Simulated assay, not measured.
Amino acid sequence: MGHGGDVIQELTTDHREVDEIFAQIEALPMGDKRRKDLADQAVIELVRHSVAEEMHLYPAVRRFLPDGDEIADREIQDHAEAERTMKELEGCSADDARFDEFIGRLMREIREHVTDEEQNLFPRLREAAAPEELEKLGEKVRSAKKTAPTRPHPSAPQTPPANKLLAPGAGLVDRVRDVLTGRGRTD
Rank of each mutant, 00 (worst) to 15 (best):
R142W: 03
A60Q: 10
D67A: 07
K146T: 06
R34Y: 01
T147R: 14
D73M: 03
Q9V: 12
F64W: 15
V61Y: 04
S93K: 12
L137D: 09
R35K: 14
Q41L: 08
R111A: 04
A60C: 09
V61M: 02
P66M: 09
S143W: 11
I25L: 07
P168D: 03
K140S: 13
I44N: 06
I8S: 08
D73I: 05
S50L: 09
P168H: 01
H113R: 02
R84T: 13
Q41K: 08
Q24K: 15
P149K: 05
E26P: 07
S93D: 15
Q77M: 10
P161W: 11
D6N: 15
E53G: 08
R34F: 03
E117H: 07
F99P: 07
D37V: 15
L28I: 03
R185K: 15
E127M: 08
E53C: 05
E112N: 14
F22P: 10
P123C: 01
S93W: 05
V51G: 03
E101M: 04
E109V: 00
E45N: 09
R63T: 13
A144L: 00
A97H: 12
K136H: 12
V61I: 14
S155W: 11
H49K: 05
L46G: 01
D6M: 02
P161N: 10
R126H: 01
L46N: 06
T150W: 06
D40E: 15
D19Y: 02
D6T: 06
A148S: 12
E81A: 10
A94P: 11
L166G: 13
P29Y: 11
S155I: 13
P149Q: 09
A97C: 04
E83D: 00
R35C: 10
S155K: 15
K140H: 12
A148H: 05
S155A: 14
Q77V: 06
H3Q: 09
I21N: 07
R105S: 12
K87H: 12
N163D: 08
K33F: 13
A27W: 01
R111I: 01
D14I: 03
G2I: 11
G138R: 02
F122L: 03
L172F: 15
V47P: 05
M30I: 13
A27R: 12
D100Q: 14
R175V: 11
M86K: 00
E132S: 15
D178L: 01
A148Q: 06
T186I: 03
C92L: 07
I44E: 09
F122T: 10
P131W: 09
E101G: 02
A162C: 00
V51Q: 07
L121W: 10
R151I: 07
S143N: 14
R34G: 09
Y58P: 01
R151G: 08
I71R: 11
V51H: 02
T12I: 06
V179I: 10
D19T: 11
E101A: 07
P149Y: 08
A94Q: 04
D37H: 13
G5E: 09
Y58A: 10
E81C: 11
P157F: 01
V18F: 00
T13N: 12
D69E: 15
V176T: 11
P157D: 05
K33M: 13
I103N: 06
D96L: 01
E90M: 12
S155E: 15
R74L: 12
T159L: 05
P131I: 08
M1G: 14
P131F: 02
E70G: 00
G31R: 01
P154R: 05
E139N: 14
A144W: 07
R35D: 00
A72D: 08
E88N: 13
G68E: 03
